[in-house]
Design a protein around this nucleic acid. Sequence first.
DNA 1: GCATATTTTGCAACCGGTTGCAAAGAAGTG
DNA 2: CACTTCTTTGCAACCGGTTGCAAAATATGC
Lengths: 332, 332
Amino acid sequence: MAITLKEVAKRAGVSRSAVSRTFTDGASVSEKMRRKVEKAARDLGYSPNALASSLTTGRTKLIGLVSNNFHNPIFLQVFDLFTRGLQDRGLRPLLVNLSDETDPEASVRMLRQYSVDGVVVASSTLSPDFAKAFRDAGVPVVHSFGRSTSAPQVHVVGIDNVECGRMAARTLLARGYKDIAFLGGPESATSTQDRYKGFFQELATAPDINLSHSFAEQYSFDAGRKEMLRLLRDHPAEAYFCGDDVLSIGVLSAIKDSGLRVPEDIGIIGLNDMEMARWQNIDLTTIHQPIRQIVTSSIELMVAMLDEPDRYPEGRVFPCSIVERGTLRPAP
Amino acid sequence: MAITLKEVAKRAGVSRSAVSRTFTDGASVSEKMRRKVEKAARDLGYSPNALASSLTTGRTKLIGLVSNNFHNPIFLQVFDLFTRGLQDRGLRPLLVNLSDETDPEASVRMLRQYSVDGVVVASSTLSPDFAKAFRDAGVPVVHSFGRSTSAPQVHVVGIDNVECGRMAARTLLARGYKDIAFLGGPESATSTQDRYKGFFQELATAPDINLSHSFAEQYSFDAGRKEMLRLLRDHPAEAYFCGDDVLSIGVLSAIKDSGLRVPEDIGIIGLNDMEMARWQNIDLTTIHQPIRQIVTSSIELMVAMLDEPDRYPEGRVFPCSIVERGTLRPAP
DNA sequence: GCATATTTTGCAACCGGTTGCAAAGAAGTG
DNA sequence: CACTTCTTTGCAACCGGTTGCAAAATATGC
């Protein structure tokens, strides 16, 4: 068993409170006492039990990191940034993988059992209600990559997906494409819905456009490939706006297999600007999503909320930009 | 603040122990009592505080999941499998991102402060000493993707990297390559060392082989690309065994940029068989690493150790196999 | 040197649970 | 119905810390 505060106190010949105080900063301890205690602690190899102290302080420094995007490589970067950022602030990420089978209710309950100080929901496919469930349970929550409305129920950090849709539409129009399609992620995802909405709005005002749409089952290579193979059997469009880069790459793979060429026969524009999009064997034209800023901002918001739990919910939206690469034909 | 056991006890008109017992299975409670307590708990929305109970039971069900591979997409799958597998067994992964700056000592201390029941080190680049530090601190530990020796100090689950090196060598020999090179990951990684060792051993016995080697700074696309661009300035080899798929893909990208073709001018064989390796625009010949089995087995071992902490350290090695795709020329 | 102000220290209660033990209650036996 | 045995329940101590409060120690002023 590990060394406890009591043993250190005994060895140093002081009270338990004295030991506790030397290990909590801001407490009143004399230099002499501090040295005595630290020596004893070092001799014994003592380190305080964070969980025990959380009982009285009410703070665990545990942050639930909830996601369901374990098939989209950009989320590796997201996890990297979140874990690093949280660690740097002395917070500990408790990772929750919300796959299809797992009951969301159960996750809420579990994270409460572990008294997490806060929860970050990192997902563009989870319903806003999910994040809200934490808020209702009295847990500070930030929804990263979520849909930001004008009156958010919880803190939301992300991009304006509607505007991204418009952006994609304008880009395709500028290249002179007429027969245009949207290939989205899961239809239930708010990100898919919003991207399509903006895309549709912008194209609706343009003349002579033939617009179609379909959805992949999830944001993954396989789902994109599968859906594109299906589309290729029929009469494919001239250009596709894919709801996400990893989807786009699946689409590219399907097109390549069919013998058609990109961008000569079919144009593709993605969204995210994941690392692989710039790999020369992929070279995907896409819309850049500022992941780093979104994560940094989410963490800031989380930290702020720990001090001020009743902070008024806020939506933070970061701008996106087109990254021109090789999967769209030049403007006519 | 959350509802506590005391409040439930009061509401149900019973003792605190009674409430505690209804929530710990295996305890002696009458049906009548159970119903009474459960009703009160439901009315109040009570759920037990896992951390408080860990204080007496000595079990937190927290498992440290330590890794430093946040740039290699296969680790997204690794995290997916680990988090799911642990969750299914009622365990909670506390994720630790061991980037270059972070002090390994500090992680050990931190995980002890949170009284994790065990630690999984998931990395092929961390020194075996790191895992050992946990064992020395009295924490059950499994090193996944680590180097398994004949007398492991801690539980290790992974592949035989030396044998993989040999396998790669045999494959390249069979294809008639003579001018052969190894492009490894970080030189300090045991996986790199072992893969090179086997590769070298096998080629040393073959006649007329010209063997060279170099190392990328980490297992990442950029590092592979950078190293290959350097090699291309000189006189590149006929075929490369790359220490990892993501490295290989970086290498492919560099080759493509240089105007050379794969497999006509240069052959590439990777290791891991990551999802992207089979993407048609990559189509990488590689050695399959059975990630799923490694993770499953690691979790099994972890669970076993929770019951039996002094279990004798064991090495579990899973076989790898060649996956033929399009980056090696056919046998002559 | 003494009275007073300030800092440091220890006591004891508490955080939210668990558990050994003994008393109370229920069930079984003759 | 009394007696034994088994089950259920509550008491109280404990897990490893924190913290308000008052006593003890030290510093300050005159």
